[in-house]
Amino acid sequence: MPITVLFFGRLAELTQTHKVELQTTASSVRELETNILELFPTLQNQPYTLALNETITDRDKPIFDSARFAFLPPFAGG
């Protein structure tokens, strides 16, 4: 099924994109995260929080068709 993934801040630099459209068979947030880390290994060990359909999510939530997934890093700067 098709999904959209957004990257913010430094994570967009590491993946060299702000947004990708993907096909996935993942059924949970955890599974999808693992697949995306395989696709973008530069994200390994980076701090981030995950959002699913514009809501901060835990890793047990199920993924549905056309899900909008996002990686949010904390920003230190001020």
Binding site: R10, P47, T49, I56, L72, P73, P74, F75, A76, G77, G78
Partner: peptide
């Protein structure tokens, strides 16, 4: 902490 539960090692400042 509900957004970012634990302190990361460090992040770039300006």
């Amino acid at each position: 902490r509900c957004l970012f539960p634990t302190e990361p090692d460090s992040g770039p400042d300006c």
